[in-house]
């Protein structure tokens, strides 16, 4: 079971679209996928269920906030299995097509944004030993919980991270084996990739320094799997020159990048979340639409190969 975080510092680069489509494709290929929505905007959650369903059925008891609340309040954490939910529309679609995969989801909560402040109050200590223990406890909790899930339950866990580097995000990265970075090929998004690299390096170093010598703790080593470029405008089977420039620039800096892109297409991506089925599972008669689906499918295949599931 691989754990992959999907993150970029820059917002609006298509993280959720990539995560939802990857999950749907993999489930359609027979994989068991667990999605963990750690972004307080809850966009991934609302890509599979409606906000009113979330409000009535999940909000109070079945979100990742509920689990983090236990941590910040110092009460025993509820098992993650209690907050895992299987969205009906997508799973019915998969079953109706005779496939054996599935998508499970740990929903986000709009109040997750405040959890960070509460977690921050748990940091610090009277001695270095105590400070280290608290740091590892606050940042390593999710890792312990996810590692405790039996390998046979899921083939992959995808974590949709918020565009920041707070404690909630750090929990996701500490728990991850690999990190996928969606980015738009433009100036600010590509700067975000490098800032992320720096932050991840620093997090690994801090976590491993603090965990060394603590009983029962092991080191972490999440790897940057690669950058997938999103919102690509094509011209003659190639990204337009203005975007190609930033793709090549990233390649020259030695950052691993995926060969396949996710194309821009407002028509098909705009309302897909409302339908509960990501575009990758739809077939379109329009050439440009089916071209988009083809490209995102090719990316998903490349992802599966790189992740090694």
């Amino acid at each position: 079971m691989e754990i992959v975080s999907v993150i970029n510092y820059k917002g609006g680069v298509g993280k959720t679209t990539v995560t939802a489509n990857l999950a749907a494709y993999m489930a359609y290929q027979g994989k068991k996928v667990l999605l963990l929505d750690m972004d307080a905007q809850a966009s991934l959650t609302f890509s599979f269920i409606s906000p009113d369903f979330w409000d009535n059925q999940l909000k109070n008891e079945k979100t990742i906030k509920k689990w983090f609340d236990c941590i910040s309040q110092g009460t025993p954490a509820i098992p993650l299995s209690q907050i895992i939910f299987e969205p009906e529309i997508i799973n019915s679609h998969i079953r109706e097509n005779g496939k054996t995969g599935k998508i499970a989801l740990i929903a986000s909560h709009l109040g997750l944004i405040n959890v960070d402040l509460e977690l921050a109050t748990l940091l610090g200590g009277a001695s270095m030993e105590q400070t280290k223990r608290k740091y590892i406890k606050v940042h390593g909790n999710l890792r312990k919980e996810l590692k405790a899930i039996p390998n046979t339950n899921y083939d992959i866990i995808l974590i949709d991270c918020p565009p920041n580097f707070n404690i909630v995000t750090k929990n996701a990265l500490v728990a991850s084996d690999q990190i996928l970075v969606p980015a738009k090929p433009d100036y600010l998004s590509t700067l975000g990739i490098e800032y992320l690299q720096r932050s991840v390096k620093s997090l690994i170093s801090d976590y491993n320094d603090f965990s060394r010598g603590l009983e029962g703790e092991t080191e972490i080593s999440p790897k940057i799997l690669g950058v997938v470029f999103t919102m690509i405008q094509m011209y003659g089977n190639q990204p337009i020159q203005a975007q190609q420039q930033y793709i090549e620039q990233t390649r020259r800096l030695g950052i691993p990048i995926f060969n396949e892109y996710v194309r821009a297409n407002n028509t098909i991506f705009a309302d897909a979340p409302q339908n509960g089925i990501p575009v990758v599972l739809n077939s379109y008669s329009n050439n440009s639409h089916s071209g988009n689906v083809f490209q995102i499918t090719e990316f998903a295949k490349e992802f599966i190969k790189k992740v090694g599931i």
Partner: peptide, 15 residues
């Protein structure tokens, strides 16, 4: 900017 500039920006951002 696309070559030397990109490299200098990268060094600065990564510290």
């Amino acid at each position: 900017e696309a070559t030397i500039g990109a490299r200098l920006r990268s060094i600065a951002i990564k510290g």
